[in-house]
Amino acid sequence: MSRAVVAEKLIEHALDLVVKSEVEPEPAAGRALARLRQWICESPDHAAAADEARRRWQMLGGLSDGLREHFEEPVAAPGRRNLLLSAAAVLGGAALAGRLGWQYWQAPVFTAAYRTQPLQLLDVTLPDAQPGTQLALGADSAIDVRLHRQRRIVRLDGGELRCDVAHDPARPFQVLTRDARIEVLGTVFSLRDRGGALTVGVERGRVQVALRDAAVDGDADRFGPPIVLGAGELMDIRNGIAQPPRPGDAAALAGWRDGWLSFQDTPLREMLASVNAYRASPIVSTDSRVNAMRLTGRFPVRDAAGLLAALPQVLPVTVRLRMDGGVELAAH
């Protein structure tokens, strides 16, 4: 088999995964995206095929208006069907041909991935309205964005995110996390996910929080009934279990935008994960006793020395400087 034929088969496989990740409803889209990412990492040839598949899929987006006119007309004329199949062939996708029907219109009109490094903040305006939804990413955070004609989806892969959502009843706004799906029409809310509890706080409006339900048909991507949070309410989700909503300063959850980190009865292990996103050298603890200690307080992001001086005053810990410039906490 020639190298060109092999390359085209790789592109077809990548295109199949790209299309599924873009047009399938959740949770199928998320599973396809995860498979695509894993497949890309397997070899440089896979990565190159995925780049070409995305390019071809974007070409289809440019043809979308003309193609949709044919879908909206009666199905009887064979010429229209041949046109769609020909478009699929041009894009190299036998896998795509079967999806150029009713699924075509579900294709996203905008996709993007945003990542921040430690110490880096990022503000993003989405092209979903005028003015558009405002997203703010904390340090060491990651999101993927897909805007569809009928819904808007942001996948939080970890870190901190504040959403000021443009109101659009026709396109609900969803944030997907490892533990829950948060859905709104238009509001301001924040999330923190540093590997421990997922915290959701609502500044304005209301959100619906639906937990992932691994017990339903063994499918971890199914969601349970929604829990409604109103303005001034926060909720922690720990190990897939929602804690009772609590009143509080929801804006403080995104206080990192103004140089502050706030914690409410937070295990020290989780607090350190947030603090370290804003440090060049980490504060670590290998002591389970220290990790389990809980802390409530508000600390300036840039004042690491002040935080390290305060910790022994409020907790039974010792601060030790390491040779690599990091800091280690130990129990008395």
Rank of each mutant, 00 (worst) to 15 (best):
K9G: 13
L10Q: 14
L10C: 05
V18A: 13
V18G: 14
K20R: 15
E22T: 12
V23M: 15
E26C: 06
P27R: 08
A29T: 13
L33N: 07
R37W: 06
R37H: 08
E42P: 00
D45G: 04
H46C: 01
H46M: 00
R56A: 02
W57S: 12
M59I: 04
L67T: 08
H70E: 10
P74L: 01
P74I: 00
V75C: 08
A77W: 08
G79Y: 13
G79M: 07
L91Y: 06
G93V: 06
A95Q: 06
G101P: 06
Q106T: 11
A107Y: 02
P108E: 08
A113P: 06
P118M: 08
Q120K: 03
D123K: 14
Q134H: 11
L135M: 05
A136M: 11
D140A: 15
A142F: 02
I143F: 00
I143V: 06
H148T: 09
H148Y: 12
I153Y: 01
R155M: 04
D157K: 00
G158S: 01
C163I: 14
D168W: 02
F173A: 05
V188N: 00
F189H: 12
S190A: 14
A197R: 02
L198K: 05
V200N: 07
G201I: 14
G201D: 14
G205V: 02
R206V: 09
Q208L: 10
A210G: 05
D217S: 03
G218N: 05
R222P: 03
R222A: 08
G224Q: 01
G232P: 04
L234R: 13
M235V: 00
D236S: 09
G240V: 01
A242V: 03
A242I: 03
Q243I: 01
Q243H: 08
R246E: 03
R246T: 02
P247F: 03
G248S: 01
A252M: 08
G259H: 10
P267I: 00
E270N: 01
A273K: 04
S274M: 10
A277F: 03
R279A: 10
A280D: 10
A280Q: 11
P282R: 12
V284L: 13
T286V: 07
D287N: 09
S288H: 11
S288L: 13
N291W: 05
N291D: 14
N291Y: 05
M293K: 02
R294P: 02
T296Q: 03
T296I: 03
G297L: 12
G297H: 09
F299M: 09
G306Q: 07
L307Q: 06
L311A: 06
Q313K: 15
T318L: 13
V319G: 05
D324H: 08
G325M: 12
G326N: 12
G326Q: 13
V327G: 05
